[in-house]
Design a protein around this nucleic acid. Structure first.
Lengths: 154, 154
DNA sequence: CTTGCTGCAAAAGATTTGCACGTGC
DNA sequence: GCACGTGCAAATCTTTTGCAGCAAG
């Protein structure tokens, strides 16, 4: 759990899962680690095609599904508004969703009493494995009266 | 905010918003208040067509959009898995989402330190208006090895 | 060499939209 | 009576799937 590169990380996990290590999988994961703007499958497609013109959308979807299943990435869902977004940052944190431009920012709450796994509802009969906290509102750019094109990140 | 019927409630809000009071809007809202299973647009369509055969899906979607915009109902998003679900219960509460059958239950947390509006992230620059807390796991029926058809509510 | 993965394109599922008619106000 | 809302069907958008060829192990 030292500072392995994204490539090392995905390669290790794929090997351990008995899955094949392909350039496409490495590319998708690496881009997701590099990006901090919670891109959609389509975003990743556009960005990655620059370096890998043969890449197909189906492979992106497939790869994201595989990685989400391995627990390597997290699928975020805003409000049904638009496509799913993805996050390679697995440390527990909330998300700020702009209801105007759709941008998603991380919100790492020092003050906010974020429920810990121990607070998971146990009386409900559910076998809770994870949780999500979303805050909805307007991002700084949209508050400032900007047109709200959506966000670029890096 | 006394115990008005669902009809009284929606009629009042539509009037205040300068929108027309139609049987379809009353029906959709009333069914959403009656149901406690966070139905999808398609669920509502099936249920309401029994009493209102001419009702169309487009009207359901349109009505849900209008009511969500008015803040009368809340749109929930499970995990991007499947269609959006709706909730007419506006009091702050978390949701338990079954990752196996898609069922959603309310979770009203007495013990859980649910962030209050005052805890909303203010340093982020966002103008936060609402929040959602989702817990993901397996519902009692699915834990018990049931097939997981999804839930009826009554 | 074997089998899983990729790329393509078509399919499937959910939601939105255009238009003509009906209806609330 | 006017304009909004409804109903229908087609369009749009996102994601999944079938299949043939390629490449990882």
């Amino acid at each position: 759990m030292t500072h392995l590169s994204a490539t090392e990380h995905i390669v290790t996990h794929l090997r351990e899962a008995g899955l094949r290590v392909t350039p496409q999988r490495i590319a998708v994961y690496s881009e997701l680690v590099r990006a901090h703007d919670h891109p959609t499958a389509a975003d990743l497609f556009v960005r990655l095609r620059l370096d890998m013109p043969s890449l197909s959308q189906a492979t992106i979807y497939n790869t994201l599904q595989v990685m989400a299943g391995m627990g390597l990435v997290r699928e975020l869902s805003t409000t049904g508004e638009g496509p799913a977004r993805y996050d390679a940052d697995l440390h527990p944190h909330a998300h700020l969703v702009c209801t105007r431009c759709g941008r998603i920012d991380d919100f790492d709450s020092p003050a906010l009493a974020m429920p810990a796994p121990g607070d998971f509802p146990s009386g409900s009969g559910y076998d809770v494995e994870s949780m999500s906290v979303f805050f909805y509102g307007r991002c700084p750019a949209c508050r400032a009266g900007a047109r709200g094109d959506g966000g670029e990140d890096g």
